[in-house]
Structure formats: structure tokens, C-alpha cells
């Protein structure tokens, strides 16, 4: 059987994403079987979002999604030396501002 014939035997897998509010991002929900995008869209909400608010839905054919292969996923790990990118790397600021405020107040009071 050729690939094309095989494709006719079964539905495609569609991944479903949804957006809760206009300013929220899209979140992956689950996958469903459908013959095409239009049918997938007509089934998506009721299958995965029966109890949640929903502002918009994407359906993406799974074969159009490109993911990092399993053996390369571990390269996504990072060393734990990047505090300079995060607020926790700047934990001393508040104390220093306080110090300056106190100094200033002390100086003005003594004048």
C-alpha cells in the first residue's frame, strides 16, 4: 500500500491549543482525530474546554509541529549561574536604598 493510500485509511492527529483571555498566551490542551482542520476546529472546544472560558482556539496538524528530538532535549538544561538575569540576583538593592534614605535623613536632621 502506498503512503498516500495509507493516509486515506485513518484520520489525522490535530493538536489543540486554546487562549483563555485576549491577553493570555495559547496553551496546549490535547490532541484529537479529525479529517481536516475545519472539522478539528468544530470539535476542539467541546472535547477539551467544557468548563473553562475560552477566547480563541488553534488546531495544528501534528506533522506540522517540529519538536526537539528526545536525545537533544537534555541540551536545554542550563547551568545555575545566571542570577544576573533574574531579580533574585539583585536582592541587595532595597537595603542599599534604605541606607541612602537614612543617611539623607540623618544629614538633614543634623543641619
Amino acid at each position: 500500500m502506498s503512503n498516500q493510500e495509507q493516509a486515506q485509511q485513518t484520520f489525522s492527529v490535530f493538536e489543540v491549543f486554546s487562549q483563555k483571555h485576549p491577553i493570555s498566551g495559547f496553551v496546549h490542551q490535547f490532541s484529537l482525530l479529525a479529517p481536516n482542520h475545519e472539522v478539528a476546529l468544530s470539535l476542539a472546544r467541546e472535547n477539551f474546554l467544557r468548563r473553562e472560558p475560552c477566547n480563541n482556539i488553534w488546531v495544528v496538524k501534528r506533522e506540522d509541529i517540529h519538536a526537539i528530538p528526545p536525545e537533544e532535549r537534555r541540551y536545554l538544561e542550563r547551568m545555575d549561574n545566571k542570577s544576573y538575569r533574574e531579580t533574585k540576583g539583585y536582592g541587595d538593592l532595597q537595603a542599599r536604598w534604605r541606607y541612602h534614605k537614612e543617611q539623607y535623613e540623618k544629614n538633614t536632621a543634623s543641619k
Partner: peptide
């Protein structure tokens, strides 16, 4: 019938 419409509308 749906299989015949496989990705025609896609």
C-alpha cells in the same frame, strides 16, 4: 465520507 474529505478543506 470524512476520510474522503481528509485535508481537502485543510
Amino acid at each position: 465520507a470524512l476520510l474522503a474529505k481528509q485535508c481537502v478543506a485543510g
